[in-house]
Design a protein around this nucleic acid. Structure first.
Lengths: 256, 256
DNA sequence: AAGTGGTCTAGACCACTAT
DNA sequence: TAGTGGTCTAGACCACTTT
């Protein structure tokens, strides 16, 4: 199939050099608007970088940065030697972020973290596997509930590696550590983590703690965290009422 | 609190100008490795861009690009006039993408889309609201099932705006359109969409179609799509067995 | 051979922050 | 004032694709 080519015309929008917005952002937005308006359609080739340089009177580097912006945002794709093309909508490109969860955590009304339980638990086979320990090694088991007023929002259980030589234990046990993890402040001991979301049925005790009649569906967010030596630090999961949390996103062209 | 400063030393890794990888990627990876190794800890300040230029013998622009890479990936944060700092782990930065869903769709064994039902439906209040129509306007109602062998993977229902002047109807009704939407090929008529994921209980007919005993939890993925005139095109939702779909991601430093 | 995207340079200038 | 990140230039050179 023959791809449509960009019609070479004088630009209808110009770059304002006195503006607060840098030139490369302005140019990216101009192109994005033109795509959103249907001037360039999915599959079409954009004007070459050299043409854009001339049309908008900017240097090659500035054009490159604009194109790179659109590339990162999935708006266009580039092919060396061929050109820059408008991408069609793809479902797979959609991304959801945990900001929705963070918002739940940092709600206006003010949320409180209730520590339901803390105790030493000897690792069974499953805990040992998830934390890289031997069976019967000691772990710290936590149960926490996030509430807003009288409403329960989510229920968190986690096992922490018990190692008196590391300060992580105290830090994590502190109720505020949960808050820090969400906010990103001062948990300089964690290097990374793995997260998995599934949909589950609440168990009897979960439904009771979350004040939800059975049967009930819930988000199940499992996490593994490890430190800068790649040693497992914690393993746990959040159970979140499905009527309190949803993940939303947009896909396609966003016009600024 | 006093932030730790980078110790200025001779670099232990160098940039290989003959390598396939461009210099700015190499430098970003060098810095990322140093962060992952704990040489720079969350809160620490990285060497200034001028220092990096000298240490690694690259131009300012190249260093900038490296830093921008790490910035985009959430590894560092920058503050004009102050420096570049290593970011602590943040849960809110985690992102999940629908690639997990796409993988489900494009599995090795080969999946098939079964069209269970297509018919004209007059819009009730809810349909009209979601598609920007008037009550009793005509819509096309679709029910589709994605299966692999004898296993049902997800169940899709959608209402499409019925407008004979637009070719979208035929295109969308075609079974392959679902495939195209996932793969990103040739749906040049859709400009954007909104997606929402919730956790739900399956209804009786859903559980029957998806061959799952009740009660059962499922992912509910609702979608709205609109065209380049910002007119709604389709509204629908996927019901996906929770044992067939999960969303996984990593957060923190990834060492390449 | 001509046109395309991709990398890189060696500076300049600016805005901001610390001292 | 000195140091920091941030933008931008006007080229050069390369790899790749099309004609």
């Amino acid at each position: 199939m023959k791809k449509r080519d960009a019609i070479s015309t004088r630009p209808t929008e110009y770059i304002d050099r006195a503006a607060y917005e840098p030139a490369y952002v302005q140019l990216a937005n101009i192109l994005r608007r033109q795509i959103a308006a249907g001037i360039y359609r999915p599959g079409d080739r954009l004007p070459s970088e050299a043409q854009l340089c001339e049309s908008y009177e900017v240097s090659p580097m500035t054009v490159r940065r604009s194109i790179n912006l659109l590339l990162d945002q999935g708006v266009v794709s580039t092919a060396q030697g061929r050109g820059t093309f408008v991408r069609a909508l793809e479902l797979g490109m959609a991304t959801f972020d945990l900001q929705d969860l963070v918002r739940l955590f940092n709600q206006d009304g003010g949320t409180t973290v209730k520590l339901l339980d803390v105790r030493i638990v000897l690792a069974d086979e499953r805990i040992a596997r998830n934390l890289g320990l031997n069976v019967n090694d000691r772990t710290i088991f936590l149960r926490r509930l996030l509430t807003k007023g009288n409403e329960a929002l989510f229920y968190h259980r986690a096992y922490l590696v018990f190692d008196p030589t590391r300060p992580i234990v105290e830090a994590e046990m502190d109720v505020t550590s949960l808050r820090g993890l969400f906010a990103g402040t001062e948990n300089a001991l964690l290097k990374g983590g793995e997260l998995t979301i599934t949909a589950t049925l609440m168990s009897a005790d979960e439904s009771q703690i979350l004040q939800t009649p059975l049967p009930a569906a819930a988000f199940h967010l499992e996490h593994h965290f490890f430190d800068f030596d790649d040693q497992p630090i914690s393993w746990g999961w959040f159970i979140c009422r499905s009527d309190r949390l949803r993940f939303s996103t947009r896909v396609g062209i966003e016009v600024p």
